[in-house]
């Protein structure tokens, strides 16, 4: 039990923080309602998937700077192919886009493995490549996402349980839970933790890294899809998801360098960051201050985490 607490301390801390923020929200805005939460969840959706993807790339010991660009590819592909298409076609397009995401991620991973160039450099280059691809598909915002998909992420099944939230949780869980429980999941953690030891344990390092990046690509495609679903169109210029995803993953307890963390923390972190943003808006603080606050939270938390880690090592 104690070990569970120790291992999950970070996630529990985030849950506590989320509760505190919920109370703050209620205090600032007594009339805060389920619909406010619904729009928050909708805005958080692409961030959630981008963060999940980034977290997996970091877990395997890398980082993927091309997340936002892959989202752009997914979003324009979906919008272009769905324009004027029926429900059946659009379902097919969804799966096609997810497959493209998987493929883009796998290409990233394969290039990292084959070229032996550091992850951060390869994905920096691929950031341009995928952005270029997105621009070639659609050189200005356009296309149209199937209306039923746009409706899918709006509204709530139950009060305070918006569709967008369910989609985020289900979308991440459906991919990650089976993987986490399989040997691939173990291998991802093993490679992130100690590649040499993993290799000697018989883990296929190259395969594991490619798989992890493919998962990252898949999540990015989900992010791009949900982005297009919420705006209704495709946007070839990558949004501000890269830095935000790194920030949320780190805030969520995923340690840069790999092997430590999970996906629950990062998702909570996304929610926390969005809630902070919303609270500041509700408190009619200059929206620009929001960026400062977000940056300060991030810096403060990682510095605190770093100092605590140093302390515990000393004692």
């Amino acid at each position: 039990m104690i070990r569970v607490l120790r291992n999950q301390a970070w996630v529990l801390g985030l849950v506590g923080l989320l509760f505190a923020l919920a109370l703050v929200t209620k205090a600032i805005q007594p009339t805060y309602s389920a619909s406010g939460f619904e729009s928050l969840a909708r805005a958080a959706l692409p961030f959630a998937f981008a963060t999940a993807g980034m977290a997996v790339a970091i877990l395997v010991g890398g980082i993927d700077l091309s997340v936002a660009s892959m989202m752009a590819v997914a979003s324009v592909t979906a919008a272009v192919l769905m324009e004027g298409a029926g429900v059946g076609t659009s379902i097919g397009v969804v799966f096609l886009v997810l497959g493209i995401g998987l493929a883009m991620g796998a290409i990233n991973g394969a290039l990292i493995v084959v070229t032996k160039v550091p992850d951060i450099v390869v994905t920096l280059a691929m950031l341009y490549v995928w952005e270029g691809v997105a621009l070639l598909i659609l050189n200005a915002p356009g296309g149209q996402v199937a209306p039923w998909l746009q409706q899918l992420i709006r509204g709530s099944v139950l009060p305070w349980v918006p569709n967008a939230l369910i989609l985020a949780v289900v979308g991440v869980a459906i991919v990650w839970v089976p993987i986490r429980r399989s040997k691939l999941g173990l291998a991802i953690y093993a490679v992130g933790s100690d590649p040499l030891a993993a290799y000697r344990s018989g883990v296929n390092i190259a395969g594991t890294r490619i798989a992890a990046y493919a998962i990252c690509g898949l999540f990015s495609a989900m992010g791009g899809l949900t982005l297009a679903m919420s705006t209704g169109i495709g946007e070839p210029i990558p949004g501000p998801y890269l830095l935000a995803a790194v920030a949320a993953a780190v805030l969520g307890g995923v340690v840069l360098g790999g092997g430590i963390g999970g996906l629950v923390g990062p998702l909570l972190a996304v929610l926390i960051l969005r809630l902070v943003r919303q609270d500041l808006t509700l408190a009619s603080v200059d929206p620009n201050v929001t960026t400062i606050v977000e940056g300060t939270i991030m810096v403060g938390v990682v510095m605190l985490g770093g100092i605590l880690a140093l302390r515990s090592r000393r004692s």
Partner: peptide, 8 residues
């Protein structure tokens, strides 16, 4: 060197 994965 130890061959176990430290974080598992």
């Amino acid at each position: 060197e130890p061959a176990l994965i430290p974080d598992l």
